[in-house]
């Protein structure tokens, strides 16, 4: 009776769980029946119960973002059971560090020019000799494979950035 008043086909979640899709179904707006895999992944990794609890804790206008981020994380965990989306974070972090080093080296070259000092003749935009400029920053960690939970600076940075998202 309730389902007939709502829609012909139940949402992907209710379809997957083989239950009646009620008008107040918390999954229905975010798991359309055309995307069954989205819910399947989320359910396999986090479980429908956890997802519904999580959705109830956030504001209605934020639920779509929450579902999409959960779906992304679930898919990443399906592809890479060991690292999940944390692997992507690690790759991006290394990229940030590499760029920062390159930027430091290029800035150092710029300073030499600005102060009329003769820079090394072999310097090609200071990009690839950046290994010599590491000067004990985060650099030494870069030789091995490391993950965001190995260093603290990242979480702090995110603290500041979260407000803008």
């Amino acid at each position: 009776m309730a389902s007939s008043s709502y829609s012909n086909s139940p949402c992907a979640a209710c379809k997957f769980l083989r239950r009646k899709c009620m008008p107040d179904c918390i999954f229905a707006p975010y798991f359309p029946p055309e995307e069954p895999q989205k819910f399947a992944n989320v359910h396999k990794i986090f479980g429908a119960s956890n997802v519904s609890k999580l959705l109830n804790e956030v504001m209605p206008h934020q639920r779509e973002d929450a579902v999409n981020s959960l779906a992304y994380e679930a898919e990443a965990r399906m592809k890479d059971p060991v690292y999940g989306c944390v692997g992507a974070i690690s790759v991006l972090q290394r990229q940030v560090i590499r760029l920062q080093r390159e930027l430091d080296a290029t800035n150092a070259d710029l300073i030499r020019y600005a102060c009329n000092e003769v820079p090394p003749a072999t310097s090609q935009f200071g990009s690839r000799r950046s290994s010599g400029h590491g000067q004990g920053s985060v650099g030494d960690q870069n030789s091995g494979f490391y993950f965001p939970y190995n260093n603290d600076h990242f979480g702090d940075g995110h603290d500041r950035g979260e407000g803008s998202m």
Binding site: S69, L70, I89, L92, Q95
Partner: peptide
């Protein structure tokens, strides 16, 4: 810590930092 965006938020922030750099 970030119930809405989770790790996805961090990924977005890192991408933005890369773009900036």
């Amino acid at each position: 810590r970030y119930p809405v965006h989770g790790c996805w938020g961090i990924i977005c922030q890192l991408r933005y930092r890369i773009w900036q750099a």
